[in-house]
Computed example of a mutant assay.
Amino acid sequence: MPDLKLSHSPLIPETEERRALRESVAALAGKYGRAYFQEAAARGGFPDELYRDLGHAGFLGVNMPEEWGGGGGGLADLAVVIEECAAQGCPMQMIVISSITASIIARHGSEVLKERWLEGICSGEKKVVFAITEPDAGTNTHNISTTATRSSDGGWTLKGQKYWTSGVDEADAVMVVARDAEPGPDGKRTLSLFLIPTDAPGFSYTVIDSALRAPERQFVTFYDDVPVAADSIVGDQGRGLQQVFAGLNPERVAAAAIASGIALYALQRGALYANQRTVWSQPIGAHQGLSHPLAKAYIDVQQARLMNFRAAELYDTGQDAACAEAANIAKLAAADACLLSLDQAMQTHGGNGLSNEYGLSDLWFTARMLKTAPVSREMVLNYVAQHSLGLPKSY
């Protein structure tokens, strides 16, 4: 398929080095393409070859410190990697997942944990997924019931379950948010973060039968008295929630990047089809009934991209408060633009839009998921209402 270069828009201010990164990622992911990614999802497998090549090229750890095998770049560089993979028809959720776990380890992990995990995450040889959501807690992290009990050997024992843990069947470890089994002196039970190898005794999982057509499947994970070594706690005991925040802004930027990439891919396919498909002696793209909705979707995704790369820039320069606002806005805007772009691209294809051969319809539930995960549209609006507009907290 001819490349319309929609993902290389000059609207995004980029250095020559970052443009080269974008072109390199596009070339690598484009070598595999949509059909390869669809086949991996259809067989219930993982796109190992693509992920391996991204790691070997240094793209997976582009934002991690060089001392741990990373590229020494920033979040904006990682956003380029995620967006370009998706724009080539390969929306890699595992990179988004790694953006939160690697960020937390890099910022709060001990030297032991950094040495144990970061280099492998950067190379693609290791994958660490994230487990926080529970059936009865949802967004209310304070209400989680998975508990960590201190062991006589200085470690912990975890008991509970998590919901919608992505890609655990491909992972080497899970980063788990758990609550103290016993309250502290102040009567409160604080949260902590733990890294659990997926082959740990007492750890198991079962797949969720979901509508998502993606290589990264969703799971319920179970922790039946899972032993956790003393050196496998991430950061300080009782500060798990604060440490999770280190990964939330990168996660939102990463989610917005994958949404924008899917939107660019869909618009590219829609524009190409509208140029090539001829009815009554002229391309269907000549009709404003098709061209205007595609143009509006393009405008929306470019606006979302501008906000997202601004959020990444704020993160990379240490402006966390401003980044939080921009990242939340970008995530909401990109998710909306993604769904609109995909829907219009499918509409442009007519009946063909529902055929997997054209590479659009099986992306719909992934696009729809991004309105809910990793943070829902409603919680973003709550954040903006409270922090940007100064309105009373509603929850």
Rank of each mutant, 00 (worst) to 15 (best):
S9M: 03
E23M: 02
A26D: 10
A27L: 12
A27D: 12
G33P: 00
A35H: 04
Q38I: 02
Q38F: 06
A40I: 02
A57L: 00
G58T: 01
G58R: 07
L60E: 01
M64H: 08
P65I: 04
E66G: 00
W68Y: 15
G70R: 08
G72K: 04
A79W: 04
A79Y: 02
I82A: 14
A86G: 03
M92A: 08
S98M: 11
T101N: 07
S103G: 06
A106D: 09
V112L: 14
I121C: 05
I121H: 05
C122Y: 06
S123V: 01
G124Y: 08
E125T: 09
K126M: 04
A131Y: 07
T141N: 06
T147Y: 12
A148Y: 14
S151K: 08
G154M: 03
G155S: 11
K159C: 01
K162F: 03
W164Y: 14
A173V: 01
V174Q: 15
V174G: 12
M175E: 10
V177D: 00
A178W: 13
A178L: 11
A178Q: 13
E182A: 10
P185V: 09
T190Q: 15
L191S: 13
I196N: 09
P201E: 10
P201G: 11
L212D: 00
P215C: 14
E216N: 14
F222R: 01
D224E: 11
D224M: 09
P227G: 05
A230W: 05
Q237A: 08
Q237E: 05
R239G: 04
G240I: 06
F245D: 13
A263F: 04
A263E: 02
G270C: 09
N275D: 08
V279G: 06
V279I: 13
P283H: 12
A286V: 01
Q288N: 09
Y298F: 07
A304Y: 02
A304C: 02
M307D: 02
R310E: 10
R310M: 11
Q319W: 10
A321N: 07
A327F: 08
L332I: 02
A335I: 01
A335H: 03
C338I: 00
L340V: 05
S341M: 07
Q347P: 04
G353V: 03
D362F: 07
D362M: 10
W364E: 04
F365L: 01
T366E: 07
A367N: 02
K371Y: 06
P374C: 05
V375T: 08
R377G: 04
M379C: 02
N382H: 14
Y383Q: 09
P392V: 05
P392T: 03
